[in-house]
Design a protein around this nucleic acid. Structure first.
Lengths: 214, 214
DNA sequence: CAGTGTGAAGTTGTTCACAGCA
DNA sequence: TGCTGTGAACAACTTCACACTG
């Protein structure tokens, strides 16, 4: 059904998912002034197999020293570049509720290459306010700002019922990628990238493990 | 390395991840008073293969009617039971910062079987306050409350640097499962369940798709 | 030896093909 | 014909095995 003709699938998705954790670990080691780290160390920290780590790292440009491991500072540099955390992407956030403001407050996003330049809502209580220095506009102002700012990414933190409506607006206004935090799936044209991120999948997994315990 | 001797792996993890989305969709149809839904409909909504949907649903107890599909109300019931969303689990939340308060505000968690009964922090500005009717205590009070309340789950929303310290506390205080929202991985005894949920993995995936576009 | 790096084997998850049904 | 349900074929990911290096 979903034909992916492109041979673009060089790096397995699970590998990309693991890499930010490697990066976080390496950054910690860097602060502690550790010079080298081996795949075995990383693997033990992540509770996974060590060959998994070497395989994952082999997709990047880094080369390790035999018997010594990978240079920590190089690892940080290579991983953050590989993951696209070094180039700043601007984003709009729609839905300045509790989850939306949590994202606005999260400095980690800033460090990892995502800058939220404006927020939108329909609630007049929040419109006009600033959350962590980001101004909240009425959603009708989206169009004007989008043209001025040439923003590629939209963050969707509205209630599930409104997700499709807002997604349609984002597409109409020229957004290229949507980070969807609602449990609902949105329909968009093929060339628009969607990343679904829902808490409840993780909750389901957790419950599943918890209940299947003896 | 990780020997899983148990044959407990009946349901594939990806299936469990998809199910909450099926549930959300079915709940929407229920509100619209649609009686039946076919796997093809669900598949088109999710942009996946329809056999995937039937396979996933075959792990639950539901049986579909030929040519008609699955009864929507039954689907909602079966899925929410299967996912453990019908039994209420109590949880403590540690780290009442922006992400922590977002979770406290999220009524979806309540609907899906998770009740946060108390929150903890070290910041004296928030201690003593109530966030969405949940009181915030100083972390030192954790022990007393844990004994009283017999809570099984701990939600970890502290800064990454403190994650291990707080995780150790949770374990010492008898928590059985930890929902870890920090990018750091925590070390816990084998019998403790950990579910890692990090935004940055999703951000990495999104960037990867965005940058590999032509 | 303890580590990297990689092709081959094994496992898990997805898609295909088709039987059965109304 | 349009759908469920399932065993078989296929693809993706992980783990193993081993060559290589200081």
């Amino acid at each position: 059904m979903t034909k992916n003709e492109k041979i673009k699938k060089l790096v397995p998705e699970p590998s990309i998912r693991r890499m930010p954790a490697y990066l976080a670990y390496a950054e910690g080691l860097l602060r502690k002034k550790q010079m080298y780290v081996s795949s075995t160390q990383i693997a033990s920290y992540m509770s996974i197999d060590s060959t998994q780590v070497t395989k994952d790292l082999s997709y990047t440009s880094i080369v390790g020293k035999t018997r010594v491991g990978y240079e920590v500072s190089a690892l940080v540099k290579v991983l953050s570049e590989f993951l696209g955390f070094t180039v700043m992407d601007d984003a709009f956030l729609v839905g300045a509720g509790s989850l939306g403001s949590a994202l606005l407050h999260d400095s980690g996003l800033n460090n990892f290459g995502l800058k939220i330049v404006a927020a939108f809502d329909v609630n007049h209580k929040t419109i006009g306010k600033k959350i962590n220095d980001v101004e909240v506009f009425h959603i009708d102002q989206f169009r004007d700002l989008a043209q001025d700012m040439n923003v590629q990414m939209g963050i969707l933190t509205v209630p599930a019922e409104n997700s499709q409506t807002v997604a349609d607006l984002m597409v109409a206004w020229g957004i290229k990628a949507i980070w969807n935090f609602t449990p609902a799936r949105i329909k968009v044209p093929d060339d628009i990238i969607v990343q679904n991120t829902t808490l409840y999948s993780n909750l389901a997994l957790l419950f599943n493990k918890l209940h299947n315990e003896e």
